[in-house]
Nucleic acid binder design. Sequence first.
DNA 1: GAAGGTATTAAAAAAGTATTAAAAATTGCG
DNA 2: CGCAATTTTTAATACTTTTTTAATACCTTC
Lengths: 228, 228
Amino acid sequence: MSKGLVLVIDDEPQIQKLFRVILTHAGYSMISAGTGREGLSELVYKKPNAVLLDMGLPDMEGSEVLLRIREISDVAVIMVSVRGQEEVKVRCLENGADDYVTKPFSAVELTARLQAVLRRKTTPGIIDEVFDNAGLRLEFNTRVSTLNGQPLKLTSIEYGLLTLFSKNAGRVLTMRQILRDVWATDNEEKLNSVRVYLNHLRQKIEEDPAQPKRIVNEPGIGYRFNLL
Amino acid sequence: MSKGLVLVIDDEPQIQKLFRVILTHAGYSMISAGTGREGLSELVYKKPNAVLLDMGLPDMEGSEVLLRIREISDVAVIMVSVRGQEEVKVRCLENGADDYVTKPFSAVELTARLQAVLRRKTTPGIIDEVFDNAGLRLEFNTRVSTLNGQPLKLTSIEYGLLTLFSKNAGRVLTMRQILRDVWATDNEEKLNSVRVYLNHLRQKIEEDPAQPKRIVNEPGIGYRFNLL
DNA sequence: GAAGGTATTAAAAAAGTATTAAAAATTGCG
DNA sequence: CGCAATTTTTAATACTTTTTTAATACCTTC
């Protein structure tokens, strides 16, 4: 029994082959498309559970394909890009991509991201009343937070930040997304504030704040909140 | 088999008739009295399970009758009043009335109140009308509050605040929620009043008002009422 | 080892809260 | 009705905490 159907949109045959090996080995079924146009068509007719979308396609930009996908579907999309091009990744994440992987990537990394993204998409219970992971607990209705049973004293912004993170655990949030959600602004002058507060939060919830395991930076993109 | 005997004290024959229809239909037996004096007499000799007491009687004030009743009996008493007269209702509740209905009322409303009151009176185990925590006690029916057994003298607003808090123990209430519930307004100019009253309440219910343990502030949000 | 982004820290600024007292409004009572 | 007592509001000031700002140090990658 397949774990799900994955559509790979990539024009390089070797990469296609690589994906096929990894995905089938991990228990997924895979269909492929070599162009953005073809990919969109496959999306409509085969209704895959997830899409792996290469940024560099012959007929159109990956980010353009993403926009078209989002016009018609809420399917899980993982962008596949080469190193660099951070601005593009950021734009894609803000335009609704669920995650991204950078070539070269390992099989473990890819399947882990895929699994995480699928779980988030298919579990409707993310509107949960409590977040609880490895000793960190948030009760959203009472606004109580604890770490290993001890009360966590959080300021209003710290709480907002942690709430945003916990509701998007495993995914990368761009600085802009954080600013918009917590500060309700697009004003880039507040970027420093985000960093200061991430520091505060790390001091409070990381075992070793100098070696953060939960709130990790994705250089040039933003931050990822990991489940432990 | 009757659900119980109800004494109606009211001087208007039509109202008497109305009560009789409603009560007998709901399965109660009913006796009536047209004056306060007559009502008290009936109470002594017939020992009803509940009394419906009209506020406007020819010989004496309803509140006066209530006081006389309470001198000799613990019977369930529901006051019947016309709309308005809030102060009178409050005073009656403080003087031991179990509930009140406002004319005009529906049959459903009356029988529901009656049933609730009788259940409370006859099953002492039901304490959902009481808040009790670490020496602080509120009886919502009678509007009586005590701290370590000593009567707490609360003003109307103080009582409203404390009721709101006790019914939302453990969760943060925003200033706006407090304003809406206790002051019935969204007018932000009243924010200071909330602070002044929180101060009053703390003086009355906190062991050390300078180091409040029950009513704690969540800066930027509002206040949390903690159970001890 | 320069450049770009990131982390850390401390102090300044802003926002929010506590407390007090007196004025205004309301209520209870003769 | 009108006085006295109480409750509620207003306002001023002191105080605390949060948030921002800004300067400096730190990594990583090329």
